[in-house]
Design a protein around this nucleic acid. Structure first.
Length: 673
DNA sequence: TGTAACTCCCCTCCG
DNA sequence: GGGAGTTACA
């Protein structure tokens, strides 16, 4: 073995299971990789091992769900095999980005003249427009809103199920409108065709159609000898079929995943696909990775116990490589406010023990669960950053700028113009639509646009700024990317400043966006990347904070997936919050909440603290009660509690408050100053 | 027509 | 609490 390692450096340091997975030759392989068991290491070693055994690198396709994962895996694999392969390399990326590249290459066969990507909110806006055109916006008919419409659409497409059954199961309150919704989706399809627009679901749909096409499919499948899929528990039905079609003929599919970490049911992912993998690919070799290199055994014991309650899963038991006697702490707090105080105290205590703030994380089910905590952290001057929550690209001013970039790429982009024009003082939806209608037909040039609009009826106040905007677009057309973007940013700045009360601060975001865009190979590429891999915040562009900066991490559990910290604090562990009350109506929903809790628990490298607030002043859905007792999270059953050190904070206080005058809420601003 | 200030009802979480 | 729709008014 040691001799072998010298010529096969990728096998070095692997344990027996990891090594077996890496060295597997042909045929379907399913690697069940528990949390912290070296999943990435194993998959990279496998890719390197395939190359080492003679498979051409470019004949290996690696599919992931995030760009971060793709980048990391490609980088590590490259490092393992060394420089021997020159420019040739493993083909990899997210499902959506590989779909996009394939579609661009095969655009002609797919009947596309160009490809304009729509992100989820662009798609929602377009649906909203059609909704209005169809006369479905009147109030006497409470037709589903654009957000709901796009959710239904996406679920129908991704789960590959028909509209009526999706409505019946997931959106029962919309069932009355099945016919209208169906019509709306058909015109949505037609309109997208006219605009050469593809939403994120279309990327998968077109790729799916291509790989299953009689002529095209064989050629696409022949490109690859091996298909490797990361996070297979997160695939949906259409992705399963794409992978299957790509592996048609050779069956060399490697899937890595952990069914216990499937937490994306809301976007049509279903852990049944990973559980079914051995049935779909007969002769599957299954390897379980159970040696955990992240957490101490007492933490894993809790995770194992939570996992044992799952209804369907591949049985496994994680064992720790590092040990510690410290048991997780289960803390019953009086209420939300004392929970916030307790978190602060423990965070500071851990820091005393040597964990920097950024080595610690507070995890929660929903983004707003940290509101009170954020106030308390601010009061105590404990710096923090929050992951998850409102996305950067959704911010109106960012969308405005992106619309301008899109128009720069394609002056005939009517959707983007519709948005941009409304930034002009005196132009609203009606005026914007009138101007946009003049763009129909042949792809107009900027000069033509300027001419047509010059004779249009536009509010006097909008004339000058509008023409300046078009001029900036036209005059910069020949500039190099960075220069052009800088010019466009300067052109839109006064409009943003005028359109938003906090315009000045919003411009900072544009500054960063422009900087990031300046480094792209083309504006077109940059815009496509924004849709395919949206940055979560402008901080994603600001680069890593300086080393001297220390900050506590607040994150939703979803955003915490794949990450780890020394000390993990999980808050709001009460039924209704975590698990979320919305999820409690179905068995599948509750199962997913359990897995979510499992993910939260297994993030900890050293200590785990679980917080249960006992008293809520505003319980979810409680109308007649100004305050009441919460019920502890149902996953914290007897057996889990027995694995923790329990602390009950000031029980008398809880009783006192519970028996106090109903509805009387103490109002104090003390904690703010 | 555009905008500001209202009212009303939501079918909420998570990317 | 907030987005979507309505109304009054410039």
């Amino acid at each position: 073995m040691f001799v072998a390692s010298e010529t096969q450096p990728w096998l070095e340091g692997l344990n027996d299971q990891q090594r077996e997975a890496a060295r597997h030759s042909d045929g379907p392989l399913l690697i069940i990789a528990g949390a912290g068991t070296g999943k990435t290491t194993t998959l990279c070693a496998r890719a390197a091992s395939l190359i080492g055994s003679g498979v051409a690198p470019e004949r290996i396709l690696l599919l992931t769900f995030t760009r971060r994962a793709a980048r990391e895996m490609l980088g590590r694999t490259r490092a393992l095999v060394g420089a021997a392969y020159g420019g040739r390399f493993v083909v990899g990326g997210t499902f959506h980005s590989v779909a996009y590249r394939t579609i661009l290459r095969e655009a002609a066969s797919l009947g596309l003249e160009s490809v304009n990507l729509l992100d989820a909110s662009d798609a929602a806006d377009l649906l909203d427009l059609l909704r209005e055109e169809h006369g479905l916006s009147t109030t006497e008919r409470r037709f589903p809103r654009k957000g709901t419409l796009i959710d239904i659409y996406s679920r129908t497409v991704n789960a590959q199920r028909d509209l009526p059954s999706v409505l019946a199961e997931s959106f029962p309150w919309c069932g009355d409108y099945a016919t209208e919704i169906g019509q709306l989706y058909r015109s949505y399809g037609v309109r997208k065709r006219e605009l050469n627009a593809l939403d994120l679901d279309d990327l998968l749909l077109y790729w799916h159609a291509a790989v299953r096409d009689e002529r095209l499919g064989g050629r696409l499948a022949d490109q690859y000898e091996h298909v490797l899929v990361d996070e297979y528990q997160d695939v949906n039905a259409i992705q399963v079929e794409i992978v299957q079609a790509l592996a048609d003929g050779h069956g060399n599919v490697t899937a890595v995943g952990d069914d216990l970490q499937a937490i994306y049911g809301f976007r049509a992912a279903d852990p049944k696909h990973i559980l079914d993998f051995p049935n779909l690919y007969l002769g599957t070799t299954m390897i379980k990775l159970e040696r955990n290199y992240r957490s101490p055994q007492p933490v894993l014991d809790v995770g194992n116990e939570v996992a044992a309650g799952a209804r369907k899963s591949f049985a496994r038991r994680l064992t720790a490589e590092s040990d510690s006697a410290r048991r997780p702490e289960l803390l019953f707090c009086r209420d939300e406010r004392s929970q916030a105080e307790a978190v602060c105290e423990r965070v500071l205590a851990r820091r005393e023990e040597g964990s920097l703030l950024r080595d610690q994380a507070v995890l929660m089910r929903a983004g707003h669960h940290s509101e009170l905590l954020e106030i308390e952290l601010t009061r105590r001057r404990i710096p923090f950053v929050k992951y998850g929550g409102i996305r950067y690209l959704e911010a109106a001013h960012v969308k405005d700028f992106v619309a301008l970039l899109r128009v720069a790429v394609n002056p005939g982009d009517r959707l983007s113009w519709f948005r941009l024009l409304q930034l002009l003082d005196g132009v609203g939806p009606v005026g914007a639509r009138r101007l946009v209608e003049q763009l129909a037909g042949e792809r107009p040039s900027l000069i033509e646009i300027q001419q047509r609009w010059a004779v249009s009826e536009i509010a006097e106040s909008a004339r000058e700024p509008g023409s300046r905007l078009v001029s900036a677009l036209a005059d910069s057309a020949e500039d190099p990317v960075a220069a052009r973007i800088g010019r466009l940013k300067r052109a839109i700045a006064p409009l943003v400043r005028a359109a938003y009360p906090d315009g000045e601060t919003r411009l900072v975001d544009l500054e960063q966006l422009a900087e990031a865009a300046g480094g792209a190979s083309s504006i077109e590429h940059f815009v496509a990347d924004l849709v395919l891999d949206p940055p979560l915040s402008s901080a994603d562009y600001a680069g890593p904070p300086g080393l001297d900066e220390d900050y506590l991490v607040l994150s939703t559990v979803h955003s915490a997936k794949g990450l780890e910290w020394n000390d993990v604090h999980v808050i709001h562990l009460s039924d209704g919050n975590f698990p979320a009350d919305m999820a409690l109506s179905t068995k599948e929903g509750l199962e997913e909440e359990r897995r979510l809790f499992y993910v939260a628990v297994t993030r900890a490298r050293r200590s785990l603290t679980l917080y249960v607030p006992m008293l809520y002043y505003h319980r979810p859905r409680a109308r007649d009660d100004a305050h009441g007792y919460g019920k502890p999270c149902r996953f914290l059953d007897q057996s889990v509690q027995a694995l923790c050190d329990q602390v009950r904070e000031s029980e008398e206080k809880v009783d006192e408050a519970g028996c106090g005058p109903r509805g009387r809420i103490e109002v104090s601003l003390d904690h703010l100053f």
